[in-house]
Simulated scan of single mutants.
Amino acid sequence: MSDIEKIVEYKLKVKLPGNINQAIEEAVFDTFAEARKKAYSSNFPLYLTKKQACEYLNISNRTLDDWIEKEDIPFKHIGKSYRFNRNELDKFMATK
């Protein structure tokens, strides 16, 4: 075993207080979630259909319908179609 492997193995055995471990885990998960969100959002157009908005927000069609009915979510109603601005959806979800 090399010296580097011994150091890495030693560092992995170090026990930190629970609140520090939890803070580190949360920071790591938040970072990955943000990176996933950025990567995922680039696959969607700026203006989304209802189906795309459900996929983008990872919610059911029924949940989106409820939010539309309550006028809780930002949307544009154009004829029989609904359109959702991806940037406005991001802001909306940040307040949820």
Rank of each mutant, 00 (worst) to 15 (best):
Y10I: 07
E55K: 05
M1P: 05
K37R: 10
T63M: 13
E25W: 14
Y82I: 03
K70R: 11
R36M: 06
I20H: 05
I20A: 04
M1G: 13
S42P: 02
E26F: 13
R62H: 04
D90C: 04
V8R: 14
E69C: 13
S42H: 09
K15Q: 06
Y56F: 14
R36D: 09
P74C: 02
K13H: 07
E34V: 07
G18I: 14
S2L: 08
R86D: 09
I73H: 01
P74G: 02
S81K: 07
Q22M: 04
Y82S: 09
L89F: 09
S60W: 02
I24Q: 03
K11C: 15
D66I: 12
Y56H: 12
E5K: 04
K80D: 14
F92R: 03
M93K: 03
I4K: 00
L46R: 06
Q22F: 14
F92N: 00
A23S: 09
A33T: 15
S2Q: 10
L46H: 10
A53S: 09
N43R: 02
Y40L: 09
A53D: 03
S2D: 02
T49D: 13
I4Q: 04
E25H: 04
C54W: 08
I59R: 02
N85H: 11
V28W: 15
E9Q: 12
N21V: 12
D30R: 05
Y56S: 08
P17R: 02
M93F: 00
F29M: 14
Y47M: 13
K50R: 05
K80F: 01
E71G: 05
S41V: 03
V28H: 07
S60L: 07
L46G: 00
C54S: 11
L46N: 10
K37Y: 11
D90H: 00
K15T: 15
A35K: 12
I7L: 14
T49R: 06
E55P: 01
S60R: 01
L57E: 01
A33I: 11
F44L: 04
S42G: 02
D65P: 07
F75K: 02
K37W: 11
S42L: 00
K76S: 10
F29A: 06
A27G: 13
Q52I: 13
V14Y: 03
N19S: 15
L57S: 10
A33Q: 05
S81Q: 09
A33S: 15
Q22R: 03
T49H: 08
Y40E: 10
E71N: 06
K11G: 10
G18W: 10
F84V: 12
F29E: 12
D90P: 07
R83G: 02
R86A: 09
L64C: 01
Y82R: 02
E25R: 07
K37I: 06
N85P: 07
K6R: 07
E69I: 06
A39M: 11
L48R: 00
Q52E: 15
F32D: 10
I73S: 00
K15A: 11
R83V: 11
E88T: 10
K50L: 01
F29C: 12
K50I: 14
Y40G: 03
V14T: 12
E55Q: 10
N43P: 00
A94T: 14
L16Y: 08
I4S: 02
F92T: 12
K13S: 13
M93T: 12
S41E: 11
Y47Q: 06
Q22D: 09
D90Q: 04
G79M: 00
K51T: 15
